[in-house]
Simulated assay, not measured.
Amino acid sequence: MNNKLKDPNIEYLFKAILALETLEESYNFFEDLCTVPELKALSQRLQVAKMLSEHHVYSDIVNETGASTATISRVNRSLNYGCDGYSIIFKRLSEAEK
């Protein structure tokens, strides 16, 4: 577990997310929890990470997602030196699509 994030409030948030059972529940929870710009920023980062993991170049990512090169660089750092969170999600989503 990442010690930078270790906090009872964050742990409660993660437990709440894990308790969601459907896509509709997720939409409802995140609509209550986040603003539209916050959700768009999170989803943009996830899309950037997906495209980076598929070896897209920065210019293509900028054009498709509208993300800044600073955001792309930050996500790229997480992919290369992070906790493998993106990798786990991409693997599970890929398995779920099969």
Score class of each variant (00 low, 15 high):
residue 62 V to M: 11
residue 5 L to V: 09
residue 41 A to S: 09
residue 78 S to V: 13
residue 75 V to I: 03
residue 34 C to M: 13
residue 22 T to V: 09
residue 23 L to W: 04
residue 19 A to D: 15
residue 92 R to P: 04
residue 69 T to I: 13
residue 95 E to S: 09
residue 77 R to Y: 12
residue 64 E to Q: 12
residue 25 E to S: 08
residue 32 D to M: 13
residue 72 I to H: 00
residue 76 N to L: 13
residue 4 K to P: 00
residue 41 A to I: 01
residue 96 A to W: 01
residue 51 M to P: 02
residue 70 A to S: 15
residue 61 I to Q: 01
residue 8 P to W: 00
residue 39 L to A: 12
residue 71 T to S: 12
residue 36 V to T: 12
residue 47 Q to F: 10
residue 42 L to E: 07
residue 53 S to N: 14
residue 13 L to A: 05
residue 65 T to S: 11
residue 92 R to A: 13
residue 88 I to S: 11
residue 71 T to K: 06
residue 19 A to W: 08
residue 25 E to D: 12
residue 16 A to L: 06
residue 10 I to F: 13
residue 21 E to S: 09
residue 73 S to Q: 02
residue 29 F to D: 04
residue 79 L to T: 07
residue 50 K to F: 10
residue 8 P to T: 03
residue 70 A to R: 09
residue 78 S to P: 02
residue 82 G to A: 10
residue 68 S to E: 14
residue 55 H to L: 03
residue 17 I to L: 09
residue 96 A to P: 00
residue 62 V to F: 06
residue 21 E to V: 01
residue 25 E to I: 00
residue 71 T to C: 11
residue 21 E to D: 10
residue 80 N to H: 13
residue 71 T to P: 09
residue 90 F to V: 04
residue 65 T to C: 10
residue 78 S to L: 15
residue 58 Y to G: 03
residue 77 R to C: 04
residue 94 S to W: 07
residue 69 T to K: 06
residue 21 E to H: 11
residue 85 G to Y: 04
residue 16 A to W: 00
residue 83 C to S: 08
residue 87 S to H: 13
residue 62 V to G: 01
residue 78 S to H: 06
residue 14 F to G: 12
residue 5 L to D: 01
residue 85 G to N: 04
residue 58 Y to H: 05
residue 13 L to M: 09
residue 55 H to F: 03
residue 73 S to T: 11
residue 88 I to H: 12
residue 49 A to Q: 03
residue 82 G to Q: 02
residue 58 Y to V: 04
residue 91 K to A: 15
residue 52 L to K: 02
residue 95 E to Y: 07
residue 48 V to M: 07
residue 81 Y to L: 14
residue 47 Q to I: 11
residue 64 E to S: 14
